[in-house]
Nucleic acid binder design. Structure first.
Length: 425
RNA sequence: GGAGAGGUGGCAGAGUGGUUGAAUGCGGCGGUCUUGAAAACCGUUGACGGUGCAAGCUGUCCGGGGGUUCGAAUCCCUCCCUCUCCGCCA
């Protein structure tokens, strides 16, 4: 949610930011409603002030045993006027809030302006020692490797649930579990995060709080009977942990990390990049979430990225980081880095992580504030989150990069204490 | 699923139709005392909106929504949530 006052004072800046994000802007409509609202407010408040005064007078008269019938009769019409105006104001506010809920966050000044993913900018790249983009032998892709070693079963997943619901088998399941545990442990022990194990179903208010709703509602699963949503990312429950809360300045920054399964309908995206793990309806992810003071949030964004990078370095997986341009930014984000890992079989980079700063956009929606120690006014926190990381795409890179010429898969050193085996095949 | 209790400020917790935005306590802030700190004592301390250069004026808010009334934290309706007991259950 953007600050209404900010929109009022900087309409052109807001319009430009929204345009750069390829979103539709409602600024003019919002401002005209805002104007109408304020005019009505002034009228109704005048009437209410009168009512308050007279009502007190009635109390005084009655206490004194005097007759107040005349002014009571007079106030009746005032009451009716108030009700009518109140209704009007409420209607205007409803419309305005709806429009505001559909208004995206603005991009940060440091974000390159661009129309689509083609305009994203590479930020940095890291390659393991001795790595080459040229394959010395024919690399099997992750689906072939999964089938060869019987560690992934996409067909049976499709049978029991539908396409895009992978099944992990044997050492595949163990490897997946090892990855999750390794990532959690690293963030907890090296990066100062507190572990959260969140609910996987959340209510509508939570989905609104982080901005999945209303715009992305079609991409979300929904349990209609209870109006609960299977989470598309642990970002939702973890950020909403502090919804409607007042935090203390001293407890900031708050760093949480949590594993969850993630559920996405991926409506309308069939056909492209849909092989195996490349696009799935359920996957596993370790998510980092930060609640920070506004003045630190861009420094924290950089920290978030390096925290995710440490995982990939430890796993020895080639990756690059790109800065998303304005046109590729998600609805709620002000700035976002994607981390992409290399797939030698697909011969391309795969998005394995997104690290975003939402500034106070989510905090405003979810009403997450903090009180400054020197008794200043409450202020909205800044929220950030980043995948650290999603196992599905990561697994693709891990399997493909670590395969030997005879098709076996070498388990990265750091995972062996979790898997208790060092090779698959 | 059945029965009951309850949702009030940053927190705890009074308050059942008329200066109650709300007693009291804790916490926060300022001060007195102290070499310093603690304790004690005194004072102060809600959020959000409208208007105004400002001082100020003003409105709304006691789980959400609706209603009764000249006037609602207080009465009525409805929804949500939490807790306790019983039943069922991984």
């Amino acid at each position: 949610m953007l600050d209404l006052k900010f929109i009022r004072e900087n309409p052109d800046k807001v319009k430009e930011g929204i345009k750069n994000k390829n979103e539709k802007d409602n600024v003019d409509e919002i401002l005209s409603l805002d104007q109408k609202r304020r005019t009505n407010l002034q009228k109704v408040e005048e009437l209410k002030a009168k009512r308050n005064k007279v009502s007190q007078e009635v109390g005084r008269l009655k206490k004194a045993g005097e007759n107040a019938d005349e002014i009571i009769a007079e106030m009746k019409s005032v009451g009716d006027g108030i009700k009518a105006l109140d209704d009007e104001v409420r209607e205007i506010e409803e419309k305005m809030n709806e429009l505001l809920a559909w208004t995206c966050n603005l991009p940060h000044d440091s974000v390159p302006v661009g129309r689509s993913a083609d305009d994203n900018v590479e930020y940095r790249k890291w390659l393991p020692e001795g790595f080459s983009f040229e394959n010395k032998f024919k690399k099997l892709d992750h689906v072939e490797l999964g089938r060869k070693h019987n560690i992934l079963d996409f067909e049976r997943g499709a049978k029991i649930s539908g396409s895009g619901f992978p099944v992990y088998v044997g050492k595949g399941a163990t490897l997946e579990r090892a990855l999750i545990n390794f990532m959690l442990d690293l963030h907890i022990s090296q990066h100062n995060y507190t572990e959260i194990m969140p609910p996987f179903l959340v209510n509508r208010d939570s989905m609104k709080g982080t901005g999945q709703i209303p715009k992305l509602e079609e991409d979300m699963y929904n349990c209609e009977k209870d109006d609960l949503f299977p989470i598309p990312t642990a970002e939702v429950p973890i950020t909403n942990l502090h919804r409607n809360e007042m935090l203390n300045e001293e407890e900031l920054p708050i760093n949480y990390v949590g594993y969850s399964a993630c559920f996405r309908r991926e409506a309308g995206s069939y056909g492209k990049d849909s092989k195996g793990f490349l696009r799935v309806h359920q996957f596993n992810k370790v998510e980092m979430v930060k609640f920070v003071k506004p003045e630190t949030s861009y420094r924290e964004l950089e920290n978030l990225v390096t925290d995710a990078e440490d995982i990939l370095k430890a796993l020895n997986i080639p990756y690059r980081i790109i800065t998303l341009c304005t046109g590729d930014l998600s609805f709620s984000a002000a700035k976002c880095y994607d981390i992409e890992t290399w797939s030698p079989a697909e011969n391309k980079w795969l998005e394995a992580s997104s690290c975003s700063n939402f500034e106070n956009f989510q905090a405003r929606r979810a009403n997450i504030r903090y009180r400054k120690a020197n008794d200043k006014k409450p202020e909205f926190v800044h929220t950030l989150n980043g995948s650290g990381l999603a196992t599905s795409r990561l697994m693709v890179s891990l399997l493909e990069n670590n395969q030997t010429e005879d098709g076996k898969i070498i388990v990265p050193e750091v995972l062996r204490k979790y898997t208790n085996f060092d090779i698959i095949g």
